[in-house]
Computed example of a mutant assay.
Amino acid sequence: MNIINIIVPELPESVNNAVIIQWHKKPGDKIYLDDILVELETDKVVLEIPATKNGILNSILVDTGNIVESQQIIGTINLTKNLDNVALNITNNKNNKLKKQLNNFKKNNFTDKKINDFSPSIRKKIKTNNITIEQINDFNNLNINKIKNFHKKEKDSSLVNNYKRVKMTPIRKHIAQRLMESKNNSVMLTTFNEVNMQKIINIRQKYGELFKRKYEIKLGLTSFHVKAVSQALKFFPKLNAFIDGEDIIYNDIYNINIALSTERGLLAPIIKNTNNLSLVEIEKEIKKLVVKGNTNKLSVDDLSSGNFTITNGGVFGSLMSTPIINPPQSAILGIHAINNRPFVLNNKISIVPIMYLALSYDHRLIDGKDSIKFLFLIKQLLEDPFRLLLNI
């Protein structure tokens, strides 16, 4: 019977280690080719290790919650043609081991000692303090003072232990570090504007079903924002640039991060070359990234080399916010909930769907005039979406 090792894959560049967050199999389980054995979480992505051969999981060498490194052995697999017999043997061995541990526990515990074996004073203290036999570890040296101390510890514990301490996941630590980096290494300012979303809503209502039938994807709002940002960046290159020491790095590509909220935290995967994509292609890229984010399939490449970020707090009902720049980028656009509001159109008050936009930018690189004009151009493009299609 051959045994092979389960090995941590080569981790992406700039990633030093990972944490085991879940084993999907336990010793004795049958394993088939491409079954997911274990999930690892780095500070950027979640990695899955699949089975490379059929067999039986023989052992887990590193438990959930522990840190592992590239090429580390974390488990073993028995390679065999007769999976049923090997699985049965491993299960029997495991059951025998558990029985042995249970017998040792019974020998070394005194839970069968009766209350009547104690003195009247101790029995009274146990009763008045509502202490059960199961709560007492050392029966042989039990006395009045220990009963009092035991009751005091239980009381103190109930007062101070009204919280729990949980270690931050690698992704959450990375988010915290990036936020502090943004706060400490930029002079961040936010400017606001409002957009009449009526024309885009009309397009979605009129062509949404046709769009879905033809392209098998829903026409959303974010694709319009991505398209508007891509066009506006061409006129304001500093918002597509970043500071590197005493230099300014101007990007000639348009890679836009889309902030996604996942169970493991906020991630910002990238839609690449957005200036060359149609609304249909942008929608497909968004859907692909959302699916990958929700199923922990995002790769490091999906999260690297972005130039500008769009975050949508509106999906959670946010009316307005001051988004934090995603370093080393120089700007981020926050889009928010659409609500019907009184609005002056052609000198008349009308009820129209309004969305607030928020642009946070690094004032070291971007002047207020440029940021305001950039945001105003995005407003114009969204209020006249045919300009997006005509690229004007």
Results as ranks from 00 to 15, higher is better:
47 L>H: 10
29 D>S: 13
20 I>N: 05
10 E>M: 14
27 P>L: 00
8 V>I: 15
12 P>E: 07
13 E>A: 14
40 L>K: 01
17 N>Y: 11
9 P>M: 11
50 P>A: 15
17 N>A: 11
30 K>S: 09
17 N>S: 15
25 K>H: 08
26 K>V: 12
34 D>I: 05
32 Y>M: 03
40 L>E: 07
38 V>G: 03
18 A>I: 10
19 V>K: 13
23 W>Y: 14
9 P>K: 12
51 A>F: 12
49 I>G: 03
12 P>G: 02
28 G>R: 01
24 H>F: 15
47 L>D: 05
40 L>M: 10
25 K>R: 14
39 E>K: 13
49 I>F: 03
41 E>S: 13
18 A>Q: 00
25 K>F: 06
51 A>D: 11
31 I>T: 01
48 E>Y: 03
28 G>H: 00
11 L>S: 01
47 L>T: 05
16 N>E: 15
14 S>D: 15
38 V>Q: 03
24 H>V: 00
14 S>M: 15
15 V>E: 10
22 Q>Y: 11
13 E>Y: 01
35 D>I: 04
9 P>S: 14
43 D>K: 07
23 W>F: 09
29 D>R: 04
37 L>V: 12
14 S>H: 15
43 D>N: 14
11 L>M: 12
44 K>E: 10
37 L>Q: 03
25 K>D: 09
46 V>W: 12
27 P>C: 07
28 G>M: 04
47 L>I: 15
21 I>A: 14
46 V>F: 11
19 V>H: 04
18 A>K: 08
48 E>T: 10
17 N>F: 04
13 E>I: 14
46 V>C: 09
35 D>V: 01
46 V>L: 13
20 I>Y: 02
29 D>L: 10
27 P>Y: 05
30 K>A: 05
35 D>N: 14
16 N>V: 13
12 P>L: 12
